[in-house]
Design a protein around this nucleic acid. Structure first.
Lengths: 205, 205
DNA sequence: GCTTTTTCTGACCGTATGGTCAAGAAAAGA
DNA sequence: TCTTTTCTTGACCATACGGTCAGAAAAAGC
């Protein structure tokens, strides 16, 4: 009947408006959290009416879930790009810088995920299990092979991954704090250099 | 008239109920964020009626602000305990372990602050400037003196502080994710050992 | 005991919010 | 062109939420 998402391929208008809505929702959800965001805010940000928003999505939760799922791949791409055939140290350092770059380029995405995890992952919990865990298991196994081969210093691979996430995403998630404490100082270059040193010293055999 | 917080010293009942409310509020705010928390939830958690909550606090925001301010000192205590006369490496490692311990012991406090900073610090922004910044400036200066004296490897002191916060608080703030990825494995001991290695390698001259 | 003060609550209010619906406006198809 | 489908919206609804208030219940003071 009037279910746009049903069978036919999306029209131009449909594509444009869905993008508009998801982008507006990213802005609002990442700033105020799921509960703090309102459909009216999202509608205003998207330049559409509230009922029109609900013409394209079945509800607030639907928007949130689709947003999270759609972004998950982008978010995990850098980890997928780690080359098992490359030089271990350089591959991991490249991963660190790529993650840092993403914190700079996509802070809203970082905060969206942070908000969701902080509150116990009520809506992407299942996707952590099915999407994230296999990739992390695989990557941790790769790191362990590298360590066993003497190409990296010995350590817990999963905690290594956690620390890379923590140190890089910190600049997006805690930006409000970083801004206060770094008033006037250039943050990006410093972070790049600092994390390079940190992980180089940690990983070198 | 009926303003309990006015002049007289708090009665036993007042002390008990305020504690009850703040503890319940910590639970609820840290789980759902400011906007996601409701007075009814807090009241239920505290075992009091909603109007009774509002007898002790002037409103939802009042509770949140008092909670944040009251917790700030506790949260910053480990940084204050860094001894300028102690051995630099040992002092910083002790700080790291103390912060990790707090993530374990007070995850709700960690998440409460994380929620607030994530959303742009709308309610403790001013207190970051007046409470946090001076302490961080002081500590960064201490670290820089240690580096200049050749007792620590040279690096950006503020980014060092950020990385310590990020890596330790990660275990509280992103617990939902850590739990999924470490299913069945003991997290605490691993984190302790890993971070010890990390910061030892980073800081050693 | 009695009086005063403190503590507590049921009932209520105004607003915000997620969501619905019937019908109009605009595209697309013929 | 006319018809059909897609898109859009104003008006509306039910519920949830922060907050108020008059007065009851319980402590404290005497």
């Amino acid at each position: 009947m009037n279910e746009p998402r049903a069978i036919r391929k999306p029209s131009r208008i449909q594509k444009r408006n869905r993008k508009l809505i998801l982008d507006a929702a990213l802005e609002v959800f990442s700033t105020y959290g799921y509960r703090g965001a309102t459909l009216d805010q999202i509608a205003a940000e998207a330049g559409l009416s509230k009922p029109n928003i609900l013409y394209y999505f079945t509800g607030k939760e639907d928007i949130h879930i689709r947003l999270l799922n759609g972004l998950m791949d982008t978010w995990l791409a850098p980890m997928r790009e780690i080359d098992p055939e490359g030089d271990p140290l350089e591959e991991i350092l490249r991963y660190v810088h790529r993650k840092l770059e993403m914190s700079r380029e996509f802070p809203r995405e970082s905060r969206l995920f942070a908000n969701e995890i902080l509150q116990g992952a009520p809506r992407i919990g299942p996707h952590l299990e099915s999407g994230l865990k296999p990739l992390v298991d695989e990557t941790a196994a790769l790191f362990e092979r590298w360590m066993a081969a003497g190409q990296l210093a010995q350590m817990d691979a999963r905690h290594l991954i956690f620390s890379i996430w923590a140190t890089t995403q910190h600049y997006a998630d805690f930006d409000a704090q970083v801004q206060v404490l770094m008033r006037g100082q250039s943050i990006h270059e410093g972070a790049d250099a600092y994390l390079d040193t940190l992980y180089r010293k940690l990983l070198m055999v």
